[in-house]
């Protein structure tokens, strides 16, 4: 390369370096103001069009929970008895619907047994937990635990969530009823009951969600939300209280573990005068809050998390989240004007 060519190319490169950020910035500023929500490593763009359907053909009422099955499909549970289950592909295209007998459809959990997908549905109006095949055939129905001595009538039992172990054992959280956690074997035989309504460490106000945390393979534990108390509680599989993780201001619904993080829909902000004040919350592998899409940035002072609250009116009453293999989030909402799920694309 001769000197002339060198100087020419150097000038062009310099012009490019100077021009690049200016135009890149200008383009984003003028042409694109996509809303980006969340904090730190977990930020998202928002797609309100994902999964919208013809409400006269496939209606929803409250969208309570949402999961991804082994085929990668997105499965939504609503309490609309025309179609309690709505199955989408990841693009939001409708694939299938079923279910007309779950008026209080609330909790939806996937269980995989010998390579086959099953669903656990809790119905607080039927006061039952129902296990079905992925296409809706009922294989097990569990009534309220009469032998436990904790319930006088079935009306006291309003189950909100289940979680299933690899051996088929499952736990039921009675978040709208007497607040007990019931532990069953795979046949539906009661093994243990713990918890109950109260403010003690091992008790709950609104034991709304439950999941088994197997991030530490040697020490699996149960994570149970005490939604009214803005607390996530850790229990052993035998029902012994271990510890609490406080999330001030956040009415967390159920914990959803994806990779090393825990994701939550937050129904609403505790201190808000505006009722539709929900947001999402994400904890890292140390159970520290790292991102709150739709809310204030999580800040710890002296190891205490400052109170969280909604900062933009995007979500109304988010009730559950599902995270796909690309880390995108699908958000189901309660009491949101019969809207379909919202998709968040990670950026």
């Amino acid at each position: 390369m001769n000197r002339r060519n060198f100087l020419h190319k150097s000038f062009c490169v310099s012009a490019g370096m100077l021009t690049l950020p200016m135009y890149a910035g200008a383009y984003r500023f003028d042409m694109s103001k996509d809303l980006i929500i969340g904090h730190n490593t977990h930020q998202y763009k928002v797609d309100l069009n994902w999964g919208n359907l013809n409400a006269s053909e496939v209606p929803v009422k409250d969208c309570h929970e949402i999961i991804q099955d082994s085929k990668g499909r997105i499965v939504l549970l609503t309490n609309h008895i025309k179609n309690n289950i709505i199955i989408y592909d990841k693009s939001g295209k409708l694939l299938d619907t079923w279910g007309t007998t779950y008026p209080g459809a609330h909790g939806l959990t996937l269980a995989v047994e010998n390579g086959e997908d099953f669903l656990f549905i809790t119905d607080y109006e039927r006061h039952q937990v129902i296990k079905t095949t992925i296409d809706g055939k009922v294989v097990l129905t569990v009534d309220y635990p009469t032998d436990s001595g904790k319930y006088k009538t079935k009306e006291e039992y309003k189950p909100t969530e289940t979680t299933v172990l690899e051996n088929g054992d499952f736990y039921v959280a009675d978040g709208y009823g007497n607040q007990f956690i019931s532990h069953y074997n795979h046949k539906g035989e009661l093994l243990n009951v713990f918890g109950g309504r109260g403010t003690g460490n091992d008790q709950f106000l609104n034991a709304h969600g439950i999941c088994v945390d197997q991030r530490d393979k040697e020490n699996p534990v149960l994570l149970i939300t005490a939604r009214e108390q803005n607390v996530l509680k850790r229990f052993s599989l035998a029902g012994e209280y271990l510890s609490s993780i406080e999330v001030p201001g956040a009415l967390i619904c159920r914990p959803v573990i994806h990779k090393e993080e825990i994701y939550f829909a937050v129904l609403k902000s505790k201190g808000s005068t505006h009722d539709a004040s929900g947001f999402l919350l994400i904890m890292n592998d140390k159970n520290e809050v790292v991102s709150c899409p739709g809310a204030t940035k999580p800040v710890y002072e002296n190891n205490q998390l400052s109170e969280l609250y909604q900062s933009i009116k995007l979500f109304q009453h988010p009730h559950d989240v599902c995270i796909d293999e690309d880390d995108n989030i699908y958000v189901a909402q309660w009491n949101s004007g019969q809207t379909y799920p919202i998709k968040l694309t990670r950026v």
Binding site: A24, L35, V46, N49, K313, T345
Partner: peptide
């Protein structure tokens, strides 16, 4: 410069805009 964000170029332009959202 207008295409530095590859994700932008392949994603559908259906994302919600900030101006459509109200502050809490």
């Amino acid at each position: 410069s207008c295409n530095t964000d590859k994700k932008d170029s392949v994603e559908p332009k259906t994302f919600l805009q900030s101006k459509e959202i109200q502050l809490a």
